[in-house]
Amino acid sequence: MARAGINKALVQRARDTLLARGEHPSIEAVRVELGNTGSKSTILRYLQELQASEPHPPSIRLDDELQTFIGSLAQRLAADAQAAVAEDRARLQRQQAAYEQQRAIDQARMEQLQTVHQELGVERQAAQRREQELNERLQTVDGECARLKAGAQHAQRLLEERTQQIRSLEEKHKQAHEALSHYRQQHLLQREQEMQRHERQTQLLHQEARHSRELLMRKQEEVAQIYLELERINAEQQMRVQDLRRQEHELQQALIDNARLMNALQTAEAGRQILQDEIQALRARAHRTLLERREDKQALRRMTLQLAQLHELLARLTTV
């Protein structure tokens, strides 16, 4: 029995539609035209009834069926080829878009690394200039230290000379005192006669001794001033030594910063090499994609050639 909703009029309408499109009204084609409804036996029965009811059934020649089959086959091949080409073209466009996006990302990363590389180069140059300045300052401090050491040695020699002069004056004073005592002992008997002469000589000696003491006091004051100057020089030398140590510490820190910058520069160079390798790999992938696209074009040309050959065969069959 026929299924609900399927009748002879619907089958006839589907059959006429297929014939109008130039398609063969087979059972499967009619069933598809009806929306995949109805049983095959019912559709076959209706088709047979419609064919029997026609007063002059159309006679289909073998060449018409072959032409219809070849045309349908050509359309199917062309549709399959166009679908394959469209799919390959869409895939190629997606790959090309992904490649362009990845290329933009890689370009941004490359520009960022170049910026970091330039900044590191500037910092390195600044560190080198600072190191050169510190070396110059260190040389200046070394020269100042050498000058201060020479001044201290000169002051020490001067102090030794002053000390020797003081000792010589003390020795002279001692000798004069001994000579005076010896003179008094030797000329004790002549003291009364030569009292005046002795008193004059004593006064002269006292004046000389007083002059010697004043000279000694001046020399002692000079020695005290020299000691104060030496203390001041030692204090300045200690301050300069501390400044030199601080500058040496700054130099060491600058050397450490320079080493850190060199490590960062080497890391940036390694990242740049990796990016270049990735870019080369992407270029190779793009080259392979272009080759595949060329092969697809060649396949499309072969399919077009086959279609042309089929059309020629169809034309020859139609002529025959």
Rank of each mutant, 00 (worst) to 15 (best):
L255E: 09
I274A: 11
S181L: 15
T163H: 11
L204C: 07
A20P: 00
M239V: 10
H56M: 06
R124W: 01
G5K: 04
L228E: 11
D16S: 13
Q273E: 12
E295M: 09
H198D: 05
R246W: 07
R91H: 12
R129E: 14
R89T: 15
A20I: 03
Q132T: 10
E54A: 06
A14G: 03
N258V: 01
D64W: 00
T115W: 03
T115N: 06
L230V: 07
P57A: 15
Q48G: 09
R103G: 02
R197E: 10
R3L: 12
R200D: 14
D106H: 09
R13D: 06
A146T: 11
E49Q: 10
N234L: 12
A281K: 06
L77P: 00
D296G: 06
R272T: 15
Q139M: 08
E278Q: 14
A254H: 03
L305S: 10
Q186V: 14
R210V: 07
A2F: 01
S41E: 10
R260W: 06
N258D: 03
L310D: 00
R210W: 04
E23S: 10
Q102V: 02
I274Y: 04
G38S: 08
E178L: 15
L62N: 02
R218E: 15
V241F: 07
Y227M: 11
Q118A: 14
G143K: 12
T37I: 13
A52V: 02
R130W: 01
T267R: 12
K40S: 12
Q238W: 04
Q112K: 12
L180I: 06
E250L: 14
R137N: 07
L47V: 06
S59W: 05
A4R: 09
R94H: 15
V85D: 03
R285T: 06
A126M: 02
E87S: 14
D296K: 06
A270H: 14
N135I: 05
S168D: 13
E65T: 14
Q101R: 15
Q165L: 11
E295A: 14
R218T: 05
Q128L: 13
E161Y: 04
R283M: 08
T304N: 10
Q125A: 07
R272I: 04
V223R: 01
Q201V: 13
A155S: 13
D88L: 09
M262R: 10
S59A: 06
E231Y: 03
H182K: 11
G22N: 03
R15D: 01
A264E: 08
R89D: 15
S26K: 01
A108P: 01
H311C: 03
L169A: 03
R61W: 00
R316W: 09
H249C: 07
E269A: 13
E100P: 00
L310V: 03
G35Q: 06
A299F: 02
Q276H: 09
E221T: 07
E292S: 05
D16I: 11
A286Y: 01
S59E: 08
L275D: 00
Q75Y: 04
N263V: 09
M239N: 13
L265P: 01
E133S: 08
E119R: 14
L205C: 05
S53A: 15
L310N: 00
I233H: 02
D80Y: 12
